[in-house]
């Protein structure tokens, strides 16, 4: 099962790609021989419980799940498995929320929070990793499609130093960017709950689009 775990649709203010366009593009990639099963929408600072992608997902045989990318005092975090209970404990649009609080809320409610683009200069988790007790973090975003020169090297060092596992996500904001970085799971992932379970089992690895042919 191969999923892009980090994408933004037009619901995020800095994206210009609709979900329908992503779906169309994945079908283009499939015709070219690439293997992508689906993607997770991780909109910036929000989570919409009402949006339902079931029909477009079924029509195209593409798994479409929902998560979020949240700003914290220790960098951006990808959050999977969001529930209404979690929404009671965090404000999605709080750009300076406590990362420790977010991680705890997720752990206590069957969700998971994973540092996004941890090697990014200025706002990456690597800048904060030693400033607090992040012992419950054991997965970070290893491959990110928007890295600048040097940031991947910083991520590699972080992962090596801390022994983290890694996921992959394109961080797509434009149609043609989706799928450039992905995560390959050993087991099927059909919904957000299964995604969290799959991440907990640690049986996954980050891959690039060219590795799926």
């Amino acid at each position: 099962m191969i999923l892009d775990l980090h994408t933004h649709s037009t619901l995020s203010d800095d994206s210009r790609a609709s979900v329908e366009q992503y779906v169309k593009w994945i079908n283009v990639l499939r015709r070219k021989g690439y293997n992508i099963d689906g993607f997770v929408l991780t909109e910036h600072r929000q989570f919409n419980f009402d949006i339902d992608y079931t029909q477009i997902s079924k029509d195209n045989n593409i798994t479409i799940l929902k998560g979020a990318e949240l700003d914290t005092d220790s960098g951006h975090f990808l959050v999977y498995g969001i529930t209404k209970e979690i929404a009671k404990h965090i404000k999605f649009n709080n750009v300076n929320m406590s990362a420790i609080h977010l991680i705890d809320v997720c752990l206590n409610n069957g969700a998971i929070a994973i540092p996004a683009h941890p090697g990014r200069f200025g706002i990456g988790f690597i800048e904060y990793v030693n400033s607090n007790n992040f012992e419950s973090i054991n997965i970070v975003e290893h491959l990110n499609g928007s890295y600048r020169p040097g940031e991947q090297d910083r991520t590699e060092k972080l992962i090596s130093d801390k022994g983290y596992l890694g996921i992959g996500g394109s961080d797509a904001h434009m149609v043609s960017a989706i799928g450039t970085c992905l995560t390959k799971f050993d087991h099927p992932v059909n919904n957000e709950k299964e995604l969290v379970q799959a991440l907990m089992t640690k049986k996954f690895k980050p891959i690039k689009l060219e590795d799926t042919k």
Partner: peptide, 10 residues
């Protein structure tokens, strides 16, 4: 020249 996307457009 490092292929960093400075401006993206649709």
């Amino acid at each position: 020249e490092n292929e960093v996307k400075l401006v993206i457009g649709k």
